[in-house]
């Protein structure tokens, strides 16, 4: 009990006994999961383990049937919708890269900037020097400065992934949820992405869902393995990948 109380006082994201089912199928089954401030965490697990559903619940897309979901120990995320949660400081990258394809790279970042998002504020918005500087800074970080005036539709798959990560950075979130960031990337891009995420994790918490075990090894962080809607094992990559249950359920013999 004591340990739970302790983790609660310093957690950024706190899930306890979260369950949700769709038409009888239990997507999450009393899942408990804690992320501390400044932590970079990797999540692995077989298809249907509930990884994406967990992200849906954290970002307000799906409501849990039962359970507690707290942000910064006091904000009940189950009562908020996507926009509220995004404004609280939780950013999310989708499994399939989702950027505004008919906007330029620059406009994509401008839209993502953490500014007043009201109807009239956006109607009368003009680009300030600070905002300009911030966008340029992010462009550097995601290595897209040279393509800033191109339409996002024309970017390569990997570049779209980066642009989406850049948009999350522009949001200035406290917590980033990244769903399969290196799917479809070349090896070089994968390594660069790992560097990028580690860089980002210096200033904020990041949760990465990934299948690529090499990539997770590159990250070198605490790993949580999900299966059938609950946590199977948690710990370092070596610890988790030697766990017999994990081998049985996910890695295979």
């Amino acid at each position: 009990m004591n340990t739970i109380a302790e983790t609660r006082t310093k957690s950024l994201l706190y899930l306890e006994n979260v369950s949700v089912s769709f038409d009888g199928f239990k997507a999450l089954n009393s899942l408990s999961f804690v992320v501390e401030p400044g932590e970079l965490r990797a999540i692995i697990g077989p298809n249907g383990a509930g990884k994406t559903t967990m992200m849906d619940i954290i970002t307000g897309k799906t409501r849990p049937d039962t359970g507690t979901v707290l942000f910064e120990d006091q904000i009940d995320l189950t009562k908020k919708d996507e926009a509220d949660i995004a404004q609280l400081g939780i950013g999310r990258k989708f499994q399939k890269p989702t950027v505004f394809e008919s906007h330029t790279v620059w406009d994509n970042l401008e839209l993502a900037l953490n500014r007043d998002r009201g109807v009239f504020a956006t109607l009368f918005y003009t680009l300030s020097p600070e905002d300009k500087a911030r966008i340029e800074e992010i462009l550097e970080t995601i290595r897209l400065t040279h393509r800033k005036d191109e339409l996002a539709a024309n970017l390569s798959h990997g570049q779209k992934q980066w642009l989406e990560i850049g948009m999350l950075l522009a949001q200035e979130p406290k917590l980033l949820l990244v769903d399969e960031p290196v799917a479809g990337m070349t090896d070089a891009e994968t390594i660069e992405t790992a560097e990028l995420l580690k860089e980002i994790a210096k200033t904020r918490s990041v949760v990465v869902v990934e299948h690529d075990m090499g990539f997770i090894r590159d990250l070198g962080v605490k790993v949580t393995c999900l299966a059938e809607g609950s946590v199977l094992a948690e710990g370092s990559i070596d610890f988790v990948s030697n766990d017999p249950k994990v081998i049985e359920n996910y890695l295979g013999r």
Binding site: K61, A86, T122, L123, Q171
Partner: peptide
């Protein structure tokens, strides 16, 4: 305006706009 860009964003990728913190319904 920036609002117009958000509008096109809603047309092309509504959930992305929502996860960026915009109130799509408004």
């Amino acid at each position: 305006s920036k609002f117009g860009k958000v509008l096109v964003g809603v047309r092309d990728a509504e959930s992305r706009v929502r996860f960026l913190g915009f109130r799509v319904e408004n």
